[in-house]
Design a protein around this nucleic acid. Structure first.
Lengths: 209, 209
DNA sequence: CCATCATTGCAACTTGATGTTGCAATATTC
DNA sequence: GAATATTGCAACATCAAGTTGCAATGATGG
């Protein structure tokens, strides 16, 4: 997905001659692109500025990545926002949801995470780019599965509630607060939404607090 | 907030002379701007295209609204997305939340509503514009207050849960589904999130289903 | 060592968008 | 009918995306 000017198979000639593409350029440009994303967001990012800052000619950038979207996508591909993937057993569904919520909140309050979340929801970005951003923002998806298994074992997860529903509620509420209302994701807020979600998940009759 | 070249008080001269600004132009441009927003989103909107379609010179547009942001803001100001504001008493909290959710879902599935929601969360738009879009998207805020009063009277709303929390959960989950996952807001989905929220709101011990 | 060949930098260019400016034509009010 | 403000028009500046041709550079294979 990177190179495009294929050396191709020249009929009668040397196969591996010529100057190879510089890996340093690739690195410099992509990492600078990430900084640009953080600073200016995905719409405000400028290829020329990226090239200048990476001390590379604009042409060399365009030779590798044909459009700004492709460049941004390539930069995002190497991001792996670590989500402390392994949410451990916290003893109760409420505590686990709160830990997960805190992780997502931290992500949404970081410049890169916020930028990614907006990118995933923007309209102008291509579908592939949106999918890429979504992959990062929605990383907790995996975590929820383990969480549900433990909650079911504890009798804290009523039958018939899909994990996606819980994810939408938890992440959605954080998105609403962070991006729409532009308010801070305080521990108090996280606790209040988790309280409602955990309460709504409990099977009828089982009430512990 | 519209006119800017004030006729001012000329010392010795007529006060109200000259050609007045044409209201038809204002109307044509603003309504065309809304269509442009629906078609191209807030970033992709082009002032030149708007002017052409409204059969008005670009200059005349810029004379009234100094920037694209101001133009879009002015267009949004005259929008009043009616939310069937008066959600009636539906007999139970669950049914009321479902009705409210259905309203918001319909809004989020309409082109203009979707465009507004994205605008409210975008980064590049000015603060004033974001606030304007938020005002429309978050219109259910008022409805939730009446809803809570009735739910409290029915004993379906546990003490200490803020209406904002419920709004964030409900609207947030819909945003997550519609904009992030880009999936349809089916009645089934709405029912599933409402079920969890309503369950989580009930006071301990009160379980009806 | 050296010819080959791709990569690189450089400069100029096209296109489309925002926003500005000067001017002549027009419409309106006094 | 004179004064005055708006309008259309055309030209302009600026900036970002993306393209193209060319000369210089550097790796590689022989």
């Amino acid at each position: 997905m990177s190179r495009q000017k294929k050396p191709s198979s020249r009929p009668g000639g040397r196969r591996d001659a010529g100057r190879p593409r510089g890996a340093p350029i690739e690195d410099a440009v992509l990492s600078r692109t990430l900084e640009e994303l953080v600073e200016h967001g995905i719409e405000g990012a400028s290829v020329e500025r990226i090239a200048r800052a990476a001390e590379v000619n604009k042409t060399s950038v365009y030779r590798r990545w044909p459009t700004k979207g492709a460049l941004v996508a390539a930069a995002l591909e190497r991001v792996a926002l670590e989500l402390g993937g392994k949410l451990e057993d916290q003893g109760s569904l409420g505590r686990e949801l709160e830990a997960l919520g805190a992780h997502v909140a931290a992500l949404l309050e970081s410049p890169l995470g916020r930028s990614l979340a907006r990118a995933a929801m923007a309209e102008s970005v291509g579908v592939e780019l949106a999918a890429l951003a979504l992959r990062e923002v929605d990383r907790p998806r995996e975590a929820v599965l383990g969480l549900r298994a433990r909650a079911q074992a504890r009798g804290e997860w009523r039958d018939g509630v899909a994990p996606e529903t819980v994810l939408a509620l938890l992440v959605g509420a954080l998105l609403h607060r962070a991006l729409l209302e532009r308010a801070a994701l305080t521990p108090g807020f996280i606790a209040s939404i988790v309280e409602v979600i955990a309460g709504g998940l409990k099977p009828a009759g089982v009430r512990s607090e």
